[in-house]
Computed example of a mutant assay.
Amino acid sequence: MPKRVDHDLRRRQIGEALLRIASTRGLQAASMRDVAAEAGVSLRLVQYYFHTKTELLLGALGYLGEQLSARVEQSIRALGTPPTPRGVIYGTLSAILPTDAEGRRLTRTYAAYYALALAEPALGAAHGATYPDLLERFLAGHLRTAQQAGQVDADLDTPTVVAGLLALTNGLGSSILGGQRDGDAALAILTYHLDRLFDPKS
């Protein structure tokens, strides 16, 4: 009897091979042949599941989003239940910071996608904002909950505040990777800004 192939698993195997290349070598020079070699499969098989490199890039980006989501969920759970709005926001932003090996891998991989979007603006314009937009909406929802509970100034422009927190977090992540500060220092800076947001008198 012929072996049954789990197509979702095979697609993920190929997509995650691309993510490994992205985190170590970047994406601009990565070919589908390179991905096949990294995944331990034939080029023909890669082309069977992903007809173009763009399709492969976008498919792998979806897997990367799943990996970050799982890290965020784990970070929030670690803070205890039920999670408060501040806990969700802190858990999410601290999970984005590259404070450990997994965080550094995720940050480097996203950076590879950003670099590719700079080289290929059409790719970034069409698909580059999908996951950042989802993340902003997620955080904005929890910040509004905090406003309704009187934990945060009700007059704050929620989307602008969230965009600023994400920009801060991304900048801190770059400073960790660049050796300017360590993870503890970055977390202290993030905590300082959240303290001021959730207690304006502090």
Score class of each variant (00 low, 15 high):
residue 1 M to P: 09
residue 2 P to N: 01
residue 2 P to I: 06
residue 7 H to E: 15
residue 11 R to M: 12
residue 11 R to Y: 10
residue 12 R to F: 01
residue 14 I to F: 03
residue 18 L to Y: 01
residue 21 I to F: 05
residue 23 S to T: 14
residue 27 L to D: 06
residue 34 D to S: 10
residue 36 A to Q: 08
residue 37 A to D: 11
residue 37 A to I: 05
residue 43 L to C: 00
residue 45 L to Q: 14
residue 46 V to Q: 03
residue 47 Q to S: 11
residue 49 Y to D: 08
residue 53 K to N: 11
residue 59 G to P: 05
residue 65 G to V: 09
residue 68 L to Q: 09
residue 70 A to L: 15
residue 74 Q to W: 02
residue 77 R to V: 13
residue 80 G to N: 00
residue 84 T to K: 07
residue 88 V to K: 09
residue 88 V to C: 14
residue 89 I to E: 00
residue 90 Y to L: 07
residue 93 L to Q: 01
residue 102 E to T: 14
residue 108 R to V: 07
residue 112 A to H: 01
residue 120 E to I: 13
residue 125 A to R: 11
residue 127 H to W: 14
residue 127 H to N: 10
residue 132 P to R: 09
residue 134 L to P: 00
residue 136 E to P: 04
residue 138 F to D: 05
residue 139 L to H: 02
residue 139 L to A: 03
residue 139 L to T: 00
residue 144 R to H: 14
residue 144 R to F: 12
residue 153 D to N: 13
residue 154 A to T: 12
residue 157 D to F: 05
residue 159 P to T: 07
residue 159 P to K: 02
residue 161 V to Q: 12
residue 162 V to W: 10
residue 163 A to M: 06
residue 163 A to Y: 02
residue 167 A to P: 03
residue 168 L to N: 01
residue 170 N to P: 03
residue 175 S to Y: 13
residue 175 S to E: 11
residue 179 G to D: 14
residue 180 Q to Y: 02
residue 180 Q to T: 10
residue 183 G to M: 12
residue 184 D to C: 11
residue 185 A to Q: 15
residue 190 L to P: 02
residue 191 T to H: 01
residue 195 D to P: 03
